[in-house]
C-alpha cells in the first residue's frame, strides 16, 4: 500500500499523531438481526480517491453508515480520520461530507438554501455558508440553477446538488454513495471527472461506493472490494492490476519450440492461438528475463512481449466469485 506523506490538517486528527490512513477497519463485524453483513472487515484506506466496490447488497451503504456513526459495529475497531465514529463527538462529522444514495431531497427548497443549510449545520458561519454553497453549486455546474427548487430538477441535477452539499462545508473526506446512479453516459463522465478533480485538485479524500467497476477503474487511486462480509481485495489499482496475470509472448515462428523451452525451464504456460501466456499468476517483472532467454535460445522471431494488465473487472470476478 502506498501511504501519502501529506500531513493531515485538522485538529481532530492531530491529537492522535497523524494516522497513515483516513479510514481503518480491524475485524469489524455487523449484522442486521440474523442477517450478517460483515463478519471480518479489515482494511486500511489511504488518502486519495478510493472506490468501494461490491455487488448490490454487499454492505457498501452499511459501511458508509458505520463510518458516519449512524450504525455501531457489533465488534472490531473502525476509525475515520483517526476517530471512532460511533463514539466521537460532533466535531468529527463536521469534517465529513456525505452524499446519500437516494435521490429524495426536499422538493420545494431551493438548491442554494439546502446546500447553505447543510453547510451551516456543519459549523460554517452564515456568511461563509452562503458564499461556499454558491461556489459549490457553480462548481458542480448548477450555478445558474441555484435558486431553483430541488423538486423541479432532474436526477442528474439532484446528484450534483448532493455532491455540492457534501463539499460545500470544506470537509476533509467525503463519502459518496453511488454518485453516478441514474445518470446518462455524458452526465456520468462529467460527474466522474468532477469527483476526480475534488480528490486531486482540491485535496479532499474521497470514498465512493459503486457497483460499476469501470467507473471506479477510471477515477480511483485505490480500490476496496467487499463481498461475503469481508474485504476480498484492497490496494492501489495499479498494484492490484499488474500484480498478477503473467506475460504474453508472441512469435512469428517456432512457437512450439518456444513453448517447450519455456515449459522445460519450469514456467507455467498456456498456449493460445498465436501467442503464449507465461506464468498465469506470477508478477510480470520476474518473468520477462526468463522469456527473453528462452526466445534467444530457440531463435524465435519475437513479435510482441508484454505483461497482461488484468482489468478490475477480471479481478472483481475472480475475487467475488471465488469466494
Amino acid at each position: 500500500m502506498r501511504w501519502h506523506s501529506r500531513p493531515m490538517d485538522i485538529a481532530v486528527v492531530d491529537s492522535v499523531s497523524s494516522p497513515p490512513s483516513v479510514i481503518s477497519a480491524t475485524a469489524v463485524s455487523k449484522s442486521w438481526g440474523s442477517h450478517s453483513v460483515f463478519t471480518d472487515l479489515t482494511v486500511e484506506v489511504p488518502r486519495g480517491v478510493t472506490g468501494l466496490l461490491g455487488s448490490n447488497g454487499s454492505g457498501k451503504t452499511t459501511l458508509l453508515g458505520m463510518l458516519l456513526g449512524l450504525h455501531h459495529p457489533d465488534g472490531g475497531d473502525l476509525r475515520i480520520l483517526g476517530e471512532d465514529p460511533a463514539h466521537a463527538g460532533p466535531e468529527l462529522r463536521q469534517h465529513i461530507g456525505y452524499s446519500p444514495e437516494h435521490h429524495d431531497l426536499p422538493d420545494d427548497v431551493a438548491a442554494q438554501d439546502l446546500v447553505r443549510h447543510i453547510a451551516q449545520i456543519h459549523g460554517l458561519p452564515r456568511r461563509e455558508a452562503t458564499t461556499r454553497s454558491s461556489d459549490a453549486l457553480w462548481l458542480v455546474g448548477l450555478g445558474e440553477e441555484r435558486a431553483r427548487p430541488v423538486g423541479t430538477m432532474s436526477t442528474g441535477q439532484r446528484q450534483r446538488v448532493k455532491l455540492a452539499q457534501a463539499i460545500a462545508h470544506g470537509p476533509s473526506i467525503i463519502l459518496l454513495d453511488e454518485p453516478t446512479d441514474g445518470l446518462d453516459p455524458v452526465q456520468r463522465d462529467d460527474m466522474l471527472a468532477l469527483i476526480r478533480r475534488i480528490g486531486t485538485e482540491f485535496e479532499i479524500d474521497v470514498l465512493l461506493s459503486s457497483h460499476l467497476l469501470e467507473e471506479v477503474e477510471r477515477i480511483a487511486d485505490n480500490v476496496v472490494i467487499v463481498a461475503d462480509g469481508t474485504v476480498r481485495a484492497a490496494g492501489p489499482i495499479s498494484e492490484l492490476r499488474s500484480g498478477r496475470g503473467g506475460v504474453i509472448v508472441q512469435v512469428a515462428d517456432r512457437s512450439a519450440e518456444l513453448a517447450s523451452a519455456l515449459r522445460s525451464s519450469g514456467l507455467e504456460i498456456d498456449e493460445q492461438r498465436d501467442r503464449i501466456l507465461v506464468g498465469t499468476t506470477e508478477a510480470a517483472e520476474d518473468l520477462v528475463d526468463a522469456i527473453r532467454d528462452a526466445v534467444a535460445a530457440v531463435q524465435a522471431p519475437l513479435r510482441r512481449l508484454y505483461p497482461v494488465e488484468q482489468s478490475l473487472e477480471e479481478l472483481f470476478l475472480t475475487e467475488v466469485h471465488d469466494a
Binding site: D9, P90, E91, Q94, H117, Q120, I121, H122, G123, L124, P125, E128, R132, D135, A136, W138, L139, G141, G143, I167, H169, G170, V186, D190, I198, E201, F202, E203, I204
Partner: peptide, 30 residues
C-alpha cells in the same frame, strides 16, 4: 460540454479552515 454549447463557469473551490460553530448553531439552523 460535448453535447451543447454551454460552458461550465468555474469559480473554483476553497476549502474551509476557519473556526466552526458548535452544535448549538447547527440546531438553530434547523
Amino acid at each position: 460540454h460535448p453535447s451543447s454549447d454551454a460552458e461550465i463557469f468555474d469559480r473554483g473551490y476553497r476549502s474551509y479552515d476557519g473556526p466552526r460553530n458548535g452544535v448549538g448553531t447547527g440546531m438553530f439552523s434547523v
